[in-house]
Amino acid sequence: MDSACKRHCSELVARERSGHTAVVEENLLYVWGGYMSVSNDEILLPNNELWVYDLQQGVWNVFHMTGDAPPSMSGTCGCFLNGHMYIFGGCDDDGQTNQIYCVDLTDGKYMWKRIMHETGSAPSPRDKLSCWIYKGRIIYFGGYGHKLQTDVDSRNRNFIIDEVAWAGSDLWGWNSEVHMFDPMRVSWSEPQTYGQAPAPRAAHAGASTGSRGYIFGGRVRETRINDIHCLDLESWTWSEIIPVSTGPVGRSWHTLTTVSDSTLFLFGGLSADCKPMSDGWLFDVKTKKWREMEHPYKDKPRLWHTACPGRDSDVVVFGGSCDYILLVDTGHCNDALVFQMQPHPLFRICEDYIAKTVRSHKMLRSQLSYLPPELLTAVQRRMCFYRPSKKQKY
C-alpha cells in the first residue's frame, strides 16, 4: 500500500507564476508560461516547460516540450479544444504578439505547433483578452495591444487609444473586437456583431453557457468596471445584463468559470481601489442574480490567476498574485485551490474518506486488499493526495 503510493508521489512543485495559461482535462491540470519575480526583475518562465498537476494524487510533474515553440510569454489566452491546448496573443520580451499555437495533450509528446492560417487575417497583437469555445471554433474578445495609426478609425468605437503609450506609427489601447478562429479550416474571420457592444477593455473575464458568451468587468484606462455582457453566438447580438441584485465590485485580472448550464463563478481580481480580492460570486444567467459564495480561501486573495472547470463541477484555481503586482510584485503563488460547487457523488465521498483515514485506521488498512483492482488503484492514487510528507519547492 505505502510502496504503491510512493511510486506515484513526487516532491516537485511548480514555480510560482502569474499571467500564465492553464487547462484541465480529466484529472490533470496543465500549466504553461507566465512570469515570476526574481529580486526586482520580472522573469518570463521557460517556454519549453509544461507542468502537469494530478488533481487526484496532488502530484506535480514537469515535461520538456519540443516543436515550434512560442516565445516565453504572459497574458496569452489559452483554451482546450479536441485534445489540444491553444494559445493566442500574449506579451513576450518584444511586446504583444498575434500568433496562435497549439499542442496535443493526448499523445504524451507535448510538441508545439505554430499555426499559419490559410484564410482571413489574424487580429492585431494583444494580450489580456478572453475567449469562448463554440461549435469547434475559438471566439476571442477584447484585450490590450497595438495597431498602426492607419488602421485606427477615429469614428470606430471598438478601440480606445492609450494616450500614455504612443510610439511612432503604433497606437496602443484597449479593444472590444470579436475575432473567430476555425481550427478545421485554419482560418480567421471577424463576425459582424449587432446590438450595443461592451466598452473596450482588457484583463476582464469570460465564460460561456450553451450558445452564449459572457464577459464581466476588466480595465479601460484607469477604470475597473463591474458590468456583465452577453454575446449570442448564433445571432452575434450583444446585450448588457442588468443584475437584479447587488453584485461584485469592479475589478480586473479576475476569473469567470462555468459551473452549470445557468451558473457562472467569479473569483478574485484587483478592485478599483487596487485591493487584491478573495471573494467568490455565483451569477445565475436566468434570474440575473448575483450571490456571494462562502468558501475556505478567504485568506488567499488572487489576481491574474487561472480558473478551470474540473471534476464534478469543481473549479480549480492555480497561481496568480496575492499582491498589487504593479507596485509590489512579490506575491506570486503556486498553489492549486479547488472550489466545490455542488455535493460530490457518493463514490467520490467514499474514496476521499478511505484515503484520508486509512493510515490511522488499522482495520480499514487491513481490508484494502479486498477491493477490486481498479478501485484499489484509484484509492491508492487518492491516498497520495493526503500523504503527510512535505513538498519541497522546485
Score class of each variant (00 low, 15 high):
G213F: 05
G331N: 12
H8E: 13
G280K: 01
F267I: 03
S189R: 11
Q192G: 03
Y370L: 13
R17Q: 11
N27S: 10
R387L: 10
D104W: 11
R114P: 05
H204R: 01
M73K: 11
I87D: 03
D273N: 14
M85I: 05
I241K: 08
L45P: 08
T106F: 00
H146F: 14
G168A: 09
R311H: 12
V285T: 14
W132K: 06
S235Q: 04
P343E: 05
Y134W: 11
W172S: 06
V152L: 08
L45N: 00
P296K: 07
W132A: 06
H20T: 02
V379M: 07
Q340P: 01
Q99C: 10
G331L: 07
T263L: 12
A203G: 00
G168F: 06
S169I: 10
R212T: 12
L337E: 03
W51Y: 07
F216R: 05
T150N: 15
E49A: 04
D170W: 14
E26P: 03
L105E: 09
F265K: 04
L303G: 01
Y53T: 00
H254N: 11
L346R: 13
G210W: 07
M277A: 06
S239Y: 03
D329C: 12
R382F: 06
Y194F: 12
H295Q: 12
W238P: 09
C384T: 09
C274L: 11
P345G: 02
W253I: 04
R15Q: 13
M65H: 04
S235W: 01
V103T: 07
Y35Q: 14
P373L: 02
T246Q: 09
K275V: 11
T66E: 08
G247H: 06
P309Y: 02
I225R: 11
R15W: 10
Q342N: 03
S208R: 09
T193D: 04
G320H: 09
S124Y: 13
L346Y: 08
H20P: 01
L264D: 05
F159R: 00
V186P: 02
L129P: 00
A307P: 03
R155S: 14
R7T: 10
R291A: 09
F80V: 00
K128S: 15
T330K: 15
D279Y: 07
F318H: 11
E25K: 10
H344F: 08
M180T: 08
A202R: 03
F181G: 03
A207R: 00
I161N: 00
V23F: 06
R212P: 02
G319Q: 06
K390Y: 07
T119R: 14
D335A: 05
I139V: 10
G34T: 05
R201W: 03
E26K: 13
V379I: 15
Y370K: 11
G331E: 07
N61K: 13
P125R: 06
L256M: 14
S369M: 13
A4N: 13
F216C: 03
K393Y: 12
C384P: 04
V164Q: 14
A22Q: 00
M36I: 11
C77A: 02
R137N: 13
E118M: 11
M36N: 15
D182S: 05
L376R: 12
H332Y: 15
F80D: 05
P183G: 12
M1C: 08
G217N: 02
E11Q: 14
A199D: 10
E374L: 14
K113P: 05
A205Q: 07
S262R: 15
T21Q: 10
S10Q: 09
H117K: 07
G168I: 02
F347S: 15
G206K: 00
